[in-house]
Write a protein that binds this DNA or RNA. Structure first.
Lengths: 333, 333
DNA sequence: CGCGTATCTGAAAGCGTTTTCACGACCCGC
DNA sequence: GCGGGTCGTGAAAACGCTTTCAGATACGCG
């Protein structure tokens, strides 16, 4: 209990004013005599004073803390992005003098640890990542906790969320294949129970329709985001439709698998079959052959979530945001 | 300031005891009459009471918070691990009923945000990741803040730290090449100004020496951890020493580049040249050809750091830990 | 049987802020 | 010059918990 610290009263005493006045200066109350403000600030500077956060919390009811909640049921290894996202969150919060509390917890059931911590009074708000079901958030929201979701929730209208433009990215990628001259364009979709999987598939379909190209079921295969599934999916597609000349793949991991399958058959990429992935996960990491892919601004995802939750804490109802994605053209298409 | 919450006094009143007694029960004071303990616990349960963290902090001086500090100068994109590490930290802390505060900040200079937040009284301890210089930590330590470092600091004796066994991993990888029959074993080292780079190179050398194989300068090339540098390094090594039959590469990114260089020359992997990387970064992600590599337990790194900082908070001086690494034999060696 | 001691409990004093409320000083216009 | 306002300030209560201190009760022992 080393309380070696300077307190507000110390400042008050040394500046010859009351604690109340110091507090006002600290909180930018404009009604304080400017001369005093200067004097008090000087003393604060001299003594290296920093307000005690706990005391402030106790008095005001706000903690300055936002929980970043990650469902530990999702395999973090499979999502190299979330480190970057949380970076975005942390930075943006600190710009508003708030801090990010990291909570990695199973969210499927009622975890007392989480619930307690997220009960209003412990944190000012919460950001949830890629949840599998909306229930927990709904409950917390009912408790009055400002919540923002990263990734499109099942019930998009129910919560403020921020997501990358999965639909638009898929559409632009597929359109690129079309413009390249591909006419028999397949897709390897991700798990459609996730909104990202669904939207990327929809974007593919939309691009084809727009170009007047029929969408054929034999050209669609659903994978599970892993490279193995990408490999088998590609093999399957090729055996069904040897005339494929382009393929849009819902993430880069599956794209890697697909490339392997194509290589194995001696197929020339991109001339025989053009390939586009999604995520830009391996930026510059694939050595010899650079994957054409769709990039999302992952850090912005986090930063936006942070701004939104701050908005919500201040009482506003933030509008959901969909961040643009863009095509990174490299060698495979 | 919605204080809709049940307080300790509410519990006391409803249980017909004093607040002091409730507090004792909450903190596991053994001297309370068992019958009362039961009654109080029942009331707590009924009312869904959870202690107010700020009030507790104010009274005790401990916050239950540990800062996880990441130097934003290091490119998080280049380190897909740190998300996993922080996961380990967060989980381990929560097991001790503490929370992780995520701070992504430039650490090279005196950042008032960081310093203020890390001044004792705001957090109970701090974990630093891969810092570039020890100074900031040294200063904070002098302030009395329990600190732990992830990754070997420059001055290893000065701080408790936890790191993977880079030396041992490199040694075992190189030894594997030797046992495989390789005799002209090259290495692509990482930046030697980082301890990981240095130690992995040392491990390579040590393995050769042990096996009685001379360490030749012409077989060592220093890269910068990127796949491009791996590719040029491999090319350079091959032109200098076409007789190379094995290569240990200090991380997987560079290994990818090196594989590309080898492929380009039509060299048979692993029969003509065997390749081992480090990090197991692409677990199952490389599609056709699986990289043999050295794996570290990244989440344990975080969890260990958390345990150590808790130890330090409790007044002990935790011993530094080096976590074992192990070889994952796949196709390239 | 009385006294010291061990055991359990409650009153109350913090912990460091914010914020309400009241109060004096001052200025204005009539 | 006097009432009504504004302005700047300080006293003090409140936030919800922990912990010291002392009191009350029960107990053991000579």
């Amino acid at each position: 209990m080393s309380r070696s610290n300077v307190t507000l009263s110390d400042i008050a005493e040394r500046a010859g004013v009351s604690p109340a006045t110091v507090s006002r200066v600290l909180n930018g109350d404009s009604r304080v005599n400017p001369a005093r403000v200067a004097r008090i600030n000087k003393v604060i500077e001299e003594l290296g004073y920093a307000p005690n956060r706990a005391a402030r919390t106790l008095a005001t009811g706000r903690t300055g803390l936002v929980a970043a909640v990650i469902d530990s049921n999702l395999n973090v290894f499979s999502d190299p992005f979330w480190g970057v996202i949380t970076t975005g969150v942390s930075r943006a919060l600190q710009d508003s003098n708030m801090q990010a509390l990291l909570m990695v917890r199973p969210l499927n059931e009622v975890d007392p640890q989480v619930i307690t911590m997220l009960t209003p009074g412990h944190v000012d708000g919460a950001i949830f990542f890629q949840l599998h079901n909306d229930d927990v958030v709904r409950r917390l929201q009912a408790l009055g906790l400002p919540c923002v979701i990263v990734g499109r929730p099942d019930d998009a209208a129910a919560f403020p969320y921020v997501d990358s433009d999965n639909f638009g990215g898929a559409e632009i990628a597929t359109t690129h294949l079309i413009q390249r001259g591909c006419r028999t364009i397949a897709t390897i979709a991700g798990n459609v129970s996730l909104s990202a999987g669904r939207l990327r598939l929809d974007g593919y379909r939309s691009a084809l329709s727009r170009a007047g190209i029929p969408v054929e079921d034999s050209l669609v295969h659903v994978g599970d985001w892993t490279d193995e599934s990408g490999e088998t999916a590609m093999a399957e597609l090729l055996s069904r439709r040897p005339d494929i000349d382009g393929v849009f793949i819902a993430n880069d991991s599956m794209a890697i698998g697909a490339l392997a399958a194509l290589d194995e058959r001696g197929i020339d990429i991109p001339n025989q079959v053009a390939v586009i992935g999604f995520d830009n996960m391996f930026a510059g990491r694939l050595g010899r052959r650079q994957l054409t892919t769709v990039q999302q601004d992952v850090e912005a995802l986090g930063a936006t979530a942070a701004s939104m939750v701050i908005e919500a804490i201040q009482g506003a109802t933030p509008a959901s945001v969909v961040l643009p994605t863009h095509l990174v053209v490299r060698e495979t298409a």
